[in-house]
């Protein structure tokens, strides 16, 4: 019985050849096999969002994604957003807005925040968007309520939500 597969994971633009047990989640592959520990394991059940990564440019919970299912697809982690020397605009905004305390959820918040900005630019509505058809011809304008709704899959036990919301809006 073959319970392992050889596969290539493309993470932050680099191809990695791996041989993984089929049970390996994308999160464990990133953290344990590739040494990319920016994505965090919080709940490991898709409830907290600390493991959020971009898969083909879209945010997903890496803890609920099996690595074998994403072979050949493009994965972006927090390490791919910016570097300590060259922070991304949202990372700069998190510093400006004091959007963290302990920092454990921050990488997931950052990846999710980048995706939220893109989803709004693409005109995707949310549960609090009053007119569902408003974004059909252009971006949805984010405000406090929109960001709070769209970021609800990322928990922050320090309660830095005000700063996080401000940073995503900055």
């Amino acid at each position: 019985m073959t319970t392992r597969s050889s596969l290539t994971l493309t993470v932050n633009g680099t191809d990695h050849a791996l041989e993984l047990d089929h049970r390996t989640t994308l999160l464990d592959a990133l953290r344990e096999h590739l040494g990319l520990t920016g994505s965090k394991k919080g709940c490991d059940h898709g409830q907290c969002g600390a493991c959020t990564v971009l898969l083909g440019g879209r945010r997903v919970n890496a803890c609920l994604t099996l690595a074998v299912q994403v072979r050949g697809r493009e994965v972006t982690t927090v390490e791919g957003l910016g570097t300590p020397e060259d922070l991304s605009p949202l990372q700069e905004a998190f510093l400006e807005c004091d959007a963290l305390q302990c920092g454990y959820c921050t990488s997931g918040q950052l990846v999710s925040g980048v995706a939220v900005q893109q989803e709004a630019a693409d005109g995707w509505p949310s549960a609090v968007t009053e007119d569902l058809t408003a974004g059909l011809s252009g971006p949805v304008v984010l405000d406090d309520a929109e960001v709070r709704e769209r970021m609800s899959g990322n928990l922050c036990r320090c309660g830095a939500y005000r700063g996080i919301t401000a940073a995503v809006l900055a």
């Binding site: 969002g49 945010r59 997903v60 999710s112």
Partner: peptide, 8 residues
């Protein structure tokens, strides 16, 4: 669910 879950 959440934005992440709806994408998957």
């Amino acid at each position: 669910a959440s934005g992440q879950l709806r994408n998957a």
